[in-house]
Amino acid sequence: MSLYQVDKLLFALFNDLELQESYKQNPAEVLKRYDLQDSEFEALRDLNAGALYRMGAHSFLLWQFARMMDLKPAVYFKQVRGE
């Protein structure tokens, strides 16, 4: 059930410009509002798109998260493809 919380955060970040700014300033402060497992918290904190994708995060929302966080597309796709 907890993966829902990852997608819920990604959905909120995708749609809420103020939350985006808060997250960029202090991700841990936003992350603690969600009921995340340790592995999910760490993957989000570390911007580990590969781990989040393999956990089952929604790929469209994950891509929007990567763009918001300025993760380079080449890095994102390398991670998602497990290369």
Binding site: Y53, S59, F60, L62, W63, Q64, V80
Partner: peptide, 9 residues
């Protein structure tokens, strides 16, 4: 179109 997925591009 696999937006954000491994086949994107």
């Amino acid at each position: 179109g696999d937006i954000g997925g491994p086949k994107m591009g």
